[in-house]
Amino acid sequence: MENISPIISYFIRQGVPLDTVIMLFMLPIIVTLIAFFRQVVGIKAFGIYTPAIVTFAFLAIPQLRYGVVVFVTVIIVGMLMRYLLKRLKLLYLPRMAITLSIVAFSILLLLAMGGWMQRTGLAAVSIFPILIMVTLVEKFVGTQIEKGNRTALLLALETLAISIVGFYIASWTGLIKFIVVYPWVILATIPVNIFLGKWDGLRISEYVRFRDVLKNM
């Protein structure tokens, strides 16, 4: 680590942990990636906050697959709860409170099950990434109400996909080393985003959506 950039070593001398510094430098890359997926590829996910936070939750869990298992469990339980609670005809917030509680218990069961199946890694997952994912349920159920099951499920899968890509990028040692040496490169994400923000071409997904029109116009 002899090439370490002076700005990074300054942060470290001030007592900021290296991991934190790297995470904060990764954030612009992750959110730019999400913006790129939306504007150019056409993968929507739940806005920008959710895929970004899920990416960081994945990074905080020892193994990616445990993160994915927790994510999938949260979505499935959230979906089931919507059906179960529908008949009670409750108002939105109390209903959501019940959903969140049940999701929390399910995750606890999941962790215990992991221990029982000798997957101790699962039980060792720290609390904050889990809490982050539990709160995902509100986003998911809200989308279910507004846009229907199919869209909500599709957006959940898209969020998962983007977060996995984000996870691999943010945990790529080559990139981490590069940032430690040239942290200013991160500023390049700003012109990239200005370009994305002015981009008015068709998204890749739109070539698929409008294929009949494109062929028969």
Binding site: W199, G201, L202, V213, L214, K215, M217
Partner: peptide, 15 residues
């Protein structure tokens, strides 16, 4: 080729 020509006529979400 028609695909490339026609894409200019189509209105996408960004535009």
């Amino acid at each position: 080729l028609t695909l490339l020509k026609n894409r200019k006529k189509l209105l996408g979400m960004n535009a």
